[in-house]
Write a protein that binds this DNA or RNA. Structure first.
Lengths: 133, 133
DNA sequence: CCCTTAATGAGAATGATCCTCATGTTCAGA
DNA sequence: TCTGAACATGAGGATCATTCTCATTAAGGG
């Protein structure tokens, strides 16, 4: 858990408040630098890890396995609809997925069921751009 | 696409037919070596990639981002219930997930919707082992 | 203001995956 | 069956994300 508030951690928190796309640690580091925040890459990784452990940020994996982070408005469990082009994301509800997951798991003798479900697509504005290009 | 059948590719295919857990490329490489198959790691990666592109094997990501492969009996779209301990997997159906995904995507102005949904848990035999230990 | 101790950062270490390119092998055609 | 062009292999290096090391810095309670 976070024990001390530092300049770097504040900067990460502020950035996450402003950006609502899923971004990689490296991208976030770039953005911080761009804003004039001196911060080491390792610190960005550490901070994101801590925030993720605390459930403050959501993590998902790009197709190539890279971790993407985002601060979500809801703390409760939810799913995402992410734009593959720009990373923008909407929070969505999975209708009864949780109950279904439990039931299916139990039916197969599995316990401690965890589920992941993510949707991705091309958002309206990216689709428009692609059309122009 | 695969154009020539080689000793190495046959070996990978045979191994995949025998193993029905999700395994990493490195693990599969180890297993092949264990079976007495001389094969380079790069070839294992290449072969798995090709098979994945052809839809012959399913790929999913471990929590740490590592790619895991498995040859599934069904070619059609389906989901998995994977044991986090041993990697064994069951193929399952997502009741209406596809239709729901399309609808949600459209509602948010997203096109070209793709969805991923995976369940993981601890399988009965792993739970039993853990109980003994 | 001053310690104690957590936090930082630069760079090395790790680990998965991909690339290079010289060499080996497959297989269609002769 | 023999051959050669083109595809495949493999050893090791290159990449790239992420983590670790450890000396240095700086919160913040007392």
């Amino acid at each position: 858990m976070i024990q001390r508030m530092t300049r770097q951690r504040s900067a990460v928190a502020e950035l996450l408040a402003d950006v609502d796309d899923f971004r990689s640690a490296q991208q976030l580091h770039e953005l911080l630098r761009g804003r004039g925040n001196e911060i080491g890459l390792a610190t960005v990784y550490r901070t994101l890890q801590t925030l993720a452990d605390a459930g403050e940020v959501d993590v998902l994996r790009a197709e190539d396995g890279e971790a993407l982070y985002r601060r979500c408005s809801r703390r409760e469990h939810h799913h995402h609809l992410v734009c593959r082009r720009c990373g923008t994301a909407e929070e969505i509800d999975g209708p009864g997925v949780e109950a279904w997951a439990e039931a299916v798991g139990a039916a197969h003798g599995f316990s401690d069921i965890v589920h992941t479900m993510e949707l991705s697509g091309i958002c309206a504005s990216c689709a428009a751009e692609a059309g122009d290009a």
